[in-house]
Computed example of a mutant assay.
Amino acid sequence: MTAEPFDVVVIGQKGRVGYEAILFAASLRRADPGFAGRLIVAEPRPGGAWPGDPRMSDAQRDLLAGELCAEIRPFDAVHFGAAYPQGNKIEALAALDPGAPFVFFDSDTLVTGPLSAVPFDFDRPCASLRREGTWPEIEFYGPGYSEIWGSLYDLMGLDFASSLDPDQPDEYWERYLYFNAGWFFYRCGPSFGRRYLETALAIRDRTPRAAELQSLDPWLDQVALPLVVHALGGGRRTIPEGLLDGSVTCHWRVMGLLFARESDAAVTAALEAIQPNRIKKVLKEHEPFRRFLLQGRGARARAMFDRAALPRRERAIRNRLKSAGLWMR
């Protein structure tokens, strides 16, 4: 068991992200009723880099703060906002309590097992290794992985060689520290957030020459994250494999993908989390949840795929779902 309490943090915002936060919270309370930490839903304040009012609706906020026992905590989106929504996870960390261990999850995540039993080592941060080699995209005559990643480590004054996986061949993408930013953890939210913000802004505003031709939208948070983890003494697999992105959590991302490729436990977690009438009443306002969880589109999507023989690339799954009219965000 984890020896110390920790906060769980997700983003909540007007529209889709707020509904996803509710589904996350409902699945956490169902799967880990003994969780003793705080569930914090970080919400951007009006103003700053978000136009209009980005806060959740009264119905979303009341459900989260009431039955789901979440603390809604505001933060200021100054540097990213509407121009780069993924930056919410970077700027929200400033609103956390100094010195309080935290685990951040993307809101489109389900809890399927006892999160409180995961043996987090909060002094050695880590992040999700459920990813594909999406960045950088190597040009035939352009810089390679080592030159591109090395230039980013040089930019931040970090040792590049110690980040490499020596079991992987040179110029193969998995040799280089690269995470999905769907979850990460550390001992102090504001400390992690300061480093994350500094790194992301440096990469965005002072992009090294070797990386100039690489797209940073939507990849900036995932490009900066490994440098932050490395700088703070973390790395690959500092917790046992098979828990997060396994038996304890599922980063489903899009309803069609949840039903097409994820485990029976994840699908069951979503279907059962939405059953209480108060939760169902709010979540059915979100069309993808209503269509897939309540009106049968999820079962149709699931019947299209054999989970034991899925296409190797996610793109192939997406394309089949789109062709069948089963792709909704």
Rank of each mutant, 00 (worst) to 15 (best):
G12F: 15
G12R: 12
Q13E: 12
V17T: 15
E20G: 11
F24L: 07
F35K: 12
R61M: 12
L63V: 12
L64K: 09
C69A: 15
R73F: 04
A77R: 15
A83Q: 10
Q86R: 12
I90E: 04
L93G: 02
D97R: 12
F102D: 11
F102R: 06
F104R: 03
F104M: 10
S116H: 06
P119N: 13
A127H: 00
L129C: 03
W135R: 02
Y141E: 12
P143C: 09
E147Q: 13
S151F: 07
D154A: 15
L155M: 05
M156Y: 06
L164G: 02
D167R: 12
E171M: 03
R175Y: 03
Y176H: 11
A181V: 04
R187G: 15
R187T: 10
G189H: 03
P190H: 08
R195H: 07
A200W: 08
L201S: 03
D205I: 07
T207C: 14
L213F: 01
Q214S: 02
W219Y: 15
D221H: 13
P226C: 14
A231S: 15
L243G: 08
D245G: 09
S247P: 01
V248H: 06
G256W: 02
F259L: 02
F259Q: 02
F259N: 01
A265S: 12
T268Q: 13
L271M: 06
L271A: 10
A273M: 03
N277I: 01
K284F: 02
R290L: 04
F292H: 02
A308V: 00
A309N: 11
R320S: 10
G325F: 09
